[in-house]
């Protein structure tokens, strides 16, 4: 055979060409086809949004609740989530996703309602709505993607931007003396009696993707119990605005984001066995 050392991709292509492995018996994973459109996503390579979308679609399909789910998309990179998730969805004004979700859930209490929000949306402009939705214990699931930056507008400082972290509006690093401290809003809402299940996960490694999926599954299942708000933070990356490759960004996330935003359950229902904490 070829003496030249092959790259991974070349090796893979050669394998496909020689052995024709793309046959049904060999399929070990297939993405959801009902809850997820097959359209390509606009997210940057390596971004966590696509993974979380896929997990939501998988959970919705596995629970068989596709006709009973209504999602709320925020202003931010995931503003077009409804172009990818084939479920009923409502777009919300910046920061107001949990208020919109409240309105939906209050008039359709038997449906599964979730909001999908980024850090700027949920923890800056929408902090009031976030706190009060959780404090009222609205029976909704809040999925909070925290990548420490405003992605869609091009990399400005977010409430969750780490101390000394550079962004386009903290070009010399976030100076906590003048710009404030990174906000641990997940720990904050966990203090409220209205929250039922609060956890922090990530999707930067396969093992974490599995845990996040379990958390989302719990978040939907708990809605049937009507006992309060489920809140899942997903610590994510932003390769484009962090100005890193996808692989570098995941390494940076591991080394910088996770020490400040540690993974695991923060609040779990006392009588529950659906614990997937660390």
């Amino acid at each position: 055979m070829n003496e030249k050392k092959m790259t991974g991709d070349e090796h893979y292509e050669t394998m496909i060409a020689e052995e024709n492995i793309c046959i049904n018996e060999n399929i070990v994973y297939d993405k959801p086809h009902d809850a997820l459109y097959s359209t390509p996503m606009h997210y940057c390579p390596g971004c966590g949004h696509g993974v979380v979308h896929r997990l939501i679609a998988e959970v919705v399909e596995e629970l068989g609740i596709i006709h009973d789910v209504i999602g709320v998309a925020p202003v931010g990179c995931s503003v077009l989530a409804y172009n990818y998730l084939n479920i009923d969805m409502s777009e919300a004004a910046h920061g107001r996703a949990s208020a919109v979700a409240t309105g939906i859930k209050r008039v359709l209490p038997d449906k599964y309602v979730f909001s999908y929000q980024g850090d700027g949306d949920l923890a800056a402009i929408g902090t009031g709505e976030t706190i009060h939705t959780c404090n009222r214990g609205e029976n909704i699931l809040v999925i909070f993607i925290n990548n420490g930056i405003y992605g869609m507008t091009g990399g400005q400082m977010a409430p969750t931007t780490l101390a000394n972290m550079k962004s386009s509006t903290s070009p010399f690093g976030r100076d906590v003396q003048t710009m404030g401290y990174p906000l641990k809003i997940t720990e904050l809402v966990a203090q409220l009696p209205g929250t039922y299940y609060v956890t922090r996960q990530s999707v930067h490694k396969a093992v974490n993707v599995r845990k996040t999926k379990k958390a989302i599954m719990n978040g939907f299942l708990y809605q049937k119990e009507n006992k309060g708000t489920c809140f899942i933070e997903v610590v994510s990356n932003c390769p484009s605005n962090w100005k890193m490759s996808p692989v570098e960004s995941n390494k940076w996330l591991d080394e910088n984001m996770l020490p400040f935003y540690p993974l695991g359950d923060i609040k779990i229902p006392s009588n529950s066995s659906k614990n997937n904490g660390e």
Partner: peptide, 10 residues
């Protein structure tokens, strides 16, 4: 602000 967005949702 929350009121009108709840109205929007519902």
């Amino acid at each position: 602000i929350a009121s009108i967005n709840m109205v929007y949702g519902a």
